[in-house]
């Protein structure tokens, strides 16, 4: 049974859980880090570089420390001091730009192609084997090929975003177009509506909610993949920034990055969710 619970109750419980979690974290991290230096495995120290060589001086950060660091980062998120020292806002902007480019290109290809596949059983049958084989490939597996052929790391990561976001949009568009109700098509036919008018006034609006579902899945995957892609190719972006902070062993920054990636992902999903509500229809 699902009863509706007042919003304030949910919010209160959320706040309580968050408080408990942060409190426990604060206590646990405070005890572990404050005491005598922990013995450091020399090999581990070598791996972690100069920070760990100081001998356990980087305990897991406490929430209060992270909050201080967050404040520092957010006070000036868009500074640029040379290529390797840019604000966190700039890094997120780079990632968003790549996602927008790759996702946008994918939409430009996938939606018209999905439309054709949905309208033509021949094309659907002919392309299906390729789609079935290529779709399960991890987008990162394309990275070496992309780097080799494109030779530009920024464009390669855009290509990887393109490849990962094209499939859900393609399949959902084709499915949405295929499932347009026969009676609406018959109405269009008896009105002699013509191919273009039928496509834009009947099929597109009928399939729009399904297409938007595909776009929503795609943008989620794209945002997952961009972090990994930027870790691989380096240079700029929130993924690269995470990797960089790991090399500096600034765990606070990594926790902040995780939080930020989560929030940006949520906002992207919400934005497409709003568009989806706009095109939704109810029978």
């Amino acid at each position: 049974m699902h009863r509706t619970v007042p919003f304030w109750q949910q919010a209160l419980l959320s706040a309580l859980l968050l408080g408990l979690f942060l409190g426990a974290w604060e206590l646990a991290a405070g005890r572990g880090g404050g005491g005598t230096g922990v013995a450091v495995d020399p090999e581990y120290a070598a791996l972690l570089g100069q920070a760990a060589a100081q001998g356990g001086q980087t305990p897991f950060p406490r929430p209060s420390e992270i909050a201080v660091r967050l404040w520092e980062l957010l006070r000036d998120p868009f500074y640029v001091r040379g290529t390797n020292d840019q604000g966190i806002g700039v890094q997120v902007a780079y990632s968003l730009l790549r996602v927008a480019a790759g996702f946008g290109l994918a939409a430009l290809v996938a939606i018209p192609l999905g439309f054709l596949i949905g309208m033509s059983p021949l094309l659907s049958g002919a392309l299906n084997p390729f789609i079935q084989v290529l779709r399960p490939v991890s987008p990162l597996a394309w990275m070496p090929l992309a780097l080799f052929t494109i030779k530009d790391s920024a464009i390669s990561s855009i290509f990887v975003i393109f490849i990962c976001s094209v499939w859900p949009m393609l399949l959902n568009t084709a499915f949405g177009v295929q499932s347009v109700r026969r009676e609406w098509l018959n109405v269009a036919r008896t009105l002699e509506a013509g191919t273009l008018r039928t496509a834009f006034r009947v099929i597109l609006p009928a399939a729009a909610p399904t297409i938007l579902t595909g776009m929503r899945i795609s943008i989620g995957i794209a945002w997952l993949v961009i972090v990994a892609a930027e870790m691989l190719v380096g240079g700029t972006g929130i993924g690269y920034w995470v990797w960089n902070q790991w090399n500096n062993l600034s765990l606070s920054d990594i926790v902040i990055a995780i939080l930020l990636i989560g929030i940006v992902g949520l906002l992207l999903d919400r934005a497409l969710g709003a568009v989806q509500r706009l095109v939704a229809w109810q029978d």
């Binding site: 009676e183 609406w184 018959n186 109405v187 008896t190 009105l191 002699e192 009947v202 609006p205 009928a206 729009a208 095109v279 229809w281 109810q282 029978d283």
Partner: peptide
């Protein structure tokens, strides 16, 4: 043909 209009069994209106 537009000369022969059909009233369908289900109303067949476009819900959007």
């Amino acid at each position: 043909s537009l000369d022969r209009a059909v009233i369908f069994q289900g109303h067949a209106l476009m819900p959007w």
